[in-house]
Nucleic acid binder design. Sequence first.
DNA 1: TGCAGACATCGACAGGCATCAATCTAGCCG
DNA 2: CGGCTAGATTGATGCCTGTCGATGTCTGCA
Lengths: 112, 112
Amino acid sequence: MSATATQPSPSATCCSPISDAPLSEADAGSLAHTYAALADPVRLRLLSLIAASGERCSCDLTDPLGKSQPTVSHHTKVLVEAGLIVGEKRGRWTYWRVAPSRVDVVARLLDA
Amino acid sequence: MSATATQPSPSATCCSPISDAPLSEADAGSLAHTYAALADPVRLRLLSLIAASGERCSCDLTDPLGKSQPTVSHHTKVLVEAGLIVGEKRGRWTYWRVAPSRVDVVARLLDA
DNA sequence: TGCAGACATCGACAGGCATCAATCTAGCCG
DNA sequence: CGGCTAGATTGATGCCTGTCGATGTCTGCA
């Protein structure tokens, strides 16, 4: 597959609160994709571990989550593709941080 | 099954922003359940149709969504179980409204 | 009382996803 | 250079979920 196949769509960054106007099919699709990234207990705990630490290495995620290394790697990938976290490789380790802008969009979508 | 089997857990109503402290497994589970209700394009459009109208009958949902009546009924049920909408039967029709309190909880969880 | 319409439920099918073992890749150290 | 370790990728497996046709239930109306 191409490297950008599941990149977050630009339309996901532009939506006003859902009470303003019905979502288009395209917007609903990309937003559902973002919410799907949050619809897993492991990913929510992963995100909160990163958010609470500010920055966190993959090697410090497998133990608290109680999941195998491939599983954790899979979940970090999903969160990256949803634009919710960003990773930085430093030497042998990868450090993760939350991507505040995207989190902000998701939070604000449901504002009344 | 019992009528309350999939009711939203009380713990889902009490969570502070995820950056404050890592989520417990139980909280992560119930929150993931709520996000899963939003992780479908049809349900997002359904929710936005209801939110934009204030109140909406099931009979006015199948056409704009382009889904069959059983499918729409399934999705409204999922949103009700997530606490995101409430339904009221009046005569032969069922009218749906958003449940602001739960929507508020979901929106606020990601606050930085 | 009997009929028609609105909605829920059931059963079945297809597609997607979480998980792990095994393997691969890349950077560090002796 | 050779071994070691962190992390990504692959492939297989089992479960969950979206969808629809068929059917059931209840309400209003003639």
